[in-house]
Design a protein around this nucleic acid. Structure first.
Length: 499
RNA sequence: GGUCCUGUGGCCGAGUGGUUAGGCAGAGCUCUGCAAAAGCUUCUACAGCGGUUCAAAUCCGCUCGGGACCUCCA
């Protein structure tokens, strides 16, 4: 089998994944800022890296997956005042800051569950690591790469850039940054415009504040990730993930901070997922085009023609390579919904398949199926090409259905090949892609109702055998109105699905 | 303005220079009491213009369009 290769944004090339400690993998992913509800765009990194997490485990790695919760404010530039996002929102919502943070954290966790994302191994909060952040800032000052001014501390980018490649991550030149940086609040405190805040003195009205060697204040935006990643994954770890929009300045700055404290670039592989767009534009608050996850699942948004199941969304995201933009659209979501259904149905058939003999009746077809199965790993290893994995799975569907419908001989494929396909479908659909059959989830939760349904199916079967189609169609049509679809299969059986 | 990415058929999207990606939608046929599903077949492509090459969606150049980052941002 081929080796896992990932596109490393830091080196701008695909590289073979070689863990620092054989058998173990450490992964840090930038988590949500819990100052508001998550939207569709936020779903992408968490699903993407959940799949990577699952895949690494599938490959046998023991993985420590750290994903933070940002519950201390970043700067938000609104008007002329530098404000704390969380404090501000809390005022608007008339909530205690931590009350609000809790509310959105809970909502975020709920959404992650909906998507069937596995819990990270550690989910540290920024507010829970103020001490670590202060320590780190102190180290940076001691080493001479940061300076204090009026109770705030800034990272000295110019000095850093003299010895280290600031800008390598994002492909930026420090001198250019000087010219293109806007006028920002607190700019006059900085020695150079490129400098970024490590610690910010809190103005009197600021609610979230902590004591520090430099007075009361709160941490800068980038330091939390550096501090928490170092604490839980060490000075040097394997993978750091996040959205492409975090490449600069967030990850660039993280690298700078950690490099000073720990003498090396914190992560070996930097993975960035691309954006979800809507009408070609990035989904984002400032564009006023966000679809919140709660709206997406309930269909309550003007742009939505219907509600979309979280699994549909997950599948939709996996049908595209994670480094491509993904354009949202009702048609595309509906296509994903139907496509995924097709895969689940085939998987069900596959699970019930008896299988052929030891030898394949159709050697050519058998070989093709084996190739399709083997390609799955190849594609996944090629920088997580989930789109191609799914395409190959789709190519197996006609074969599976063909055997069921007896267009293809039952012994065309060998027992071993069918078993391989079964294992592949299980591995990818369930274990690696983390998909769940939303129909199976919808049904079968009430044994009594199941009994009632079975009774109706039996009555209809009797009616049909008496050619009483009026009755049989009435049952089928009325059940359909309730969202229960009956399908007469070729073998005389009836299959049930839920809309 | 700077840096970078991108432009594939009705929609979403893979594509390592030479073989049908795939899904959804459309059309025809088969199966079926009907329906649904499924199977088979099938129609819509590579923004434009040049260049390199035996061969380009794929490499190069130009033009046009879209986008991201440079400020909080998944």
């Amino acid at each position: 089998m081929s080796e896992l290769k990932v596109y490393n944004s830091y080196t701008r090339q695909k590289e073979i994944f070689e863990p620092i400690v054989p058998g173990y993998a450490g992964m840090y992913v930038c988590g949500p800022t819990v100052s508001g509800e998550s939207h569709l765009g936020h779903a992408r990194p968490f699903i993407t890296f959940d799949v990577l997490y699952r895949y690494l485990m599938h490959l046998g790695y023991k993985v420590r997956y750290v994903r933070n919760i940002t519950d201390a404010g970043h700067f938000e530039e609104e008007g002329r005042e530098a404000e704390d996002k969380i404090s501000k929102k809390a005022q608007i919502e008339k909530l205690e800051p931590m009350e609000m943070v809790q509310k959105y954290t809970n909502l975020f966790h709920w959404a992650m569950k909906q998507f069937n994302n596995l819990d990270p191994s550690i989910e540290p909060t920024a507010t829970g690591h103020i001490v670590e952040q202060i320590d780190m800032i102190r180290t940076i000052i001691d080493k001479g790469y940061a300076y204090e001014k009026n109770g705030s501390v800034y990272f000295d980018v110019r000095k850093y850039a003299e010895e280290y490649p600031y800008g390598k991550m994002s492909g930026r030149v420090v001198d250019d940054l000087l010219e293109t940086t806007r006028e920002l609040e607190g700019q006059d405190e900085k020695r150079n415009k490129q400098d970024f805040a490590l610690w910010k003195a809190a103005p009197p009205e600021h609610i979230m504040r902590w004591n520090s060697p430099w007075g009361e204040g709160f941490p800068g935006w980038h330091i939390e990730c550096s501090a928490m990643a170092t604490k839980y994954l060490g000075k040097h770890f394997d993978i750091h993930g996040g959205g492409m929009d975090l490449q600069f300045p967030h990850h660039e700055s993280e690298i700078a901070q950690s490099t000073i404290c720990n003498h090396e670039v914190p992560a070996r592989y930097w993975l960035h997922n691309n954006m979800i767009t809507i009408n070609g534009k990035k989904m984002g608050k400032s564009y006023n085009n966000v679809i919140r996850l709660t709206e997406l699942f309930s269909g309550s948004h003007p742009l939505l023609e219907q509600a979309y199941h979280p699994m549909t969304v997950r599948f939709f995201i996996l049908q595209t390579h994670y480094r491509s933009t993904l354009d949202f659209g009702n048609e595309a979501l509906q296509a994903a919904q139907k496509g995924m259904r097709r895969l689940w149905d085939a998987y069900k058939v596959l699970n019930e398949m008896e299988g052929g003999g030891t030898d394949a009746g159709d050697a050519e077809l058998d070989a093709r199926c084996i190739k399709l199965v083997e390609e799955l790993d190849e594609f996944m290893n090629d920088d997580l090409n989930t789109a191609k994995v799914l395409a190959s799975m789709f190519e197996m569907v006609p074969v599976i259905n063909g055997i069921r419908d007896k267009h293809i001989d039952g012994d065309a494929l060998s027992k071993g090949t069918i078993e391989k396909m079964r294992v592949a479908f299980k591995s990818y659909l369930e274990d690696i892609f983390g998909l769940q059959d939303e129909q199976a989830m919808a049904g079968g939760e009430d044994n009594k109702l199941d009994g009632v349904l079975q009774l109706l199916i039996d009555i209809r079967k009797d009616a049909k055998s008496r050619k009483d189609f009026a009755t049989s169609d009435k049952i089928r049509n009325q059940l359909q109105e309730l969202g229960i679809l009956l399908k007469d299969e070729k073998d005389g059986g009836v299959s049930v699905s839920f809309a």
